[in-house]
Design a protein around this nucleic acid. Sequence first.
RNA 1: GGCCCUAUGGAGAAGCGGCUUAACUCAUCGCCCUCUCAAGGCGACAUUCACGGGUUCGAAUCCCGUUGGGGUCACCA
Length: 556
Amino acid sequence: MITNKQLADLIFPNVTETIEDLERRYPPRNLPEGAEVTRFAPSPTGFLHTGSLFTSMICRKVASQSGGVFYIRLEDTDTKREIAGSGEQLLEQLQIFGVNPDEGYLGNSEKGSYGPYIQSKRADIYCVVIKHLLEEGKAYPCFCTTQDLEALRLEQESKKLNPGYYGEFAKCRNLTNEERYERIKHGDKFVIRFRSSGDYHNKIKVSDLVRGQFEIAQNDQDIVIYKSDGLPTYHFAHAVDDHFMRTTTVIRGEEWVASLPIHVELFAALGWKAPRYAHLPVIMKIDEETGNKRKLSKRKDREAAVSYFIEDGYLPEALIMYLMTIANSNFEEWILSNHFEGMQDFVFSFKKMSLDGALFDMGKLNFFARELLAKLNKNEITNLAISYAEKYNPDLYQTIKSDQNYFTEIMNIDREKANPRKDFEKFGNVLEIISYFYKDGYDKAISNGLQFNEKFTKEDIIEALSAIEKELQIGEDEQSWFNNLKEIGIKLNYAANNKEYKANPDNFKGNIGDLAEILRITLTGRKNAPSLYAVMALLGLEESHRRMECVISLIK
RNA sequence: GGCCCUAUGGAGAAGCGGCUUAACUCAUCGCCCUCUCAAGGCGACAUUCACGGGUUCGAAUCCCGUUGGGGUCACCA
């Protein structure tokens, strides 16, 4: 008669530690009452998803505001999907957004006394717990092949039964230890399954920090806890790691609520207190093909990858602020009344979280992005533009470096004042918006044609430009510049103000706005631009005259 | 299909039985602002809270049903 102990020893001959040893090695944390220990546990399978940033941002927030600990654990048990280097990349990207861990996996190193924080390096720990479960008869080896499982699924489907490895369908559950022992000795491939004692027809009450209490069917599946490659599955690793790393609150995506019964049963079987759970709503998007809401998809949506925001030159804080408005809608009012400052003082609450997934709103992100960029002074924005351009935008980089002071002054137009211009939401757009300040951009703009108002003949335009070239000075300030322009206008019979013009349009060639438009198109190649005074002042009289002559000869 | 969650305007939402002829923010549109745009100011935008019943003197708010949406049913996390 083979005992469970003998079987366990056969499978794990080298495991000598016990759960008690682990309890001693990873003692409860010495933290003040109410301090939350949270964690972000990504898989190194690709770039950081916007939804993951959302989750990790909340983990960071909850730990910070309770005086607790936020750590990172790398869940690399799926060796097939692993992408080399993505763990490091994930960390870098989190740091860009200010989601810095106190402890755990840090990319090239790790920190903290609850490690290792990389699951593939924790195999010995999992084995201790699995061996214990084996000895207690709460786990057993299963020799079913993928084909066996597939056949089972088909059978259950045809009988309209719940699919899965449970109850009477759990064939290997009832093998004798002798059979198990023999097959393992024989070298048969196997996994280890947890022996569930749940009943699908019974409900358990579970509670969730964002959803409150609800009922859900008990788990009855004998889930795999130890894969044939010697690594644990998510469910099992979650229980073991969050127990021994002393996590108080597990914050994760909504997709996990369905497996909550498994986790509850696992913790109970091990005699451990389960952590609190917060299942977060997912960020959605309207699918253009179906018109339905769906999760932000790595494949289809650029905004699903945080790298998109970095490469386009968004300020990281802008995304974080936007995500916080999704997390807690009262945040929006709060940050507005705090003039977009001091986010760290905002108190996040799970209770104020919406239960269904918000649609990702680029427009609102842009709103925050514009506000934040407008708050910077000219040197701050220049420096940030340079560090962005250096990495992601060679054209912009070259342009800035051709004359850095000039660039700074362009960015400074209507900037350092109470109500600054808000032209930019991201650095990726800057060059396009300011291109006419540079020779290449200007040449390109006018080569595409000049859109003068059709009511003016080319003679009118030449007359206007000649007069402006001869008489318009940049002057002391905007006011005197504008008065100067008006005087020129009056001589050429342009009404000095709109009211006058509207009263008797036939008495005039046009109004002052028309004259300004002629100048604007000439100087910038476009109909919209910041104050012409600012433009001329920056371009300088010489370049302004050059452009006027250029346009005159072009339309002649 | 089973199970779980969910349903207020274009978007995020407040609302927790009378204070709501539904707050706030973004977007959109209109007007204003001694040159356009941006900014700013002002205003418009849900007579109604998916739909149908019910409870109540009274419902967006409570109950039931229907419908829609989302999630999940792996040796993936």
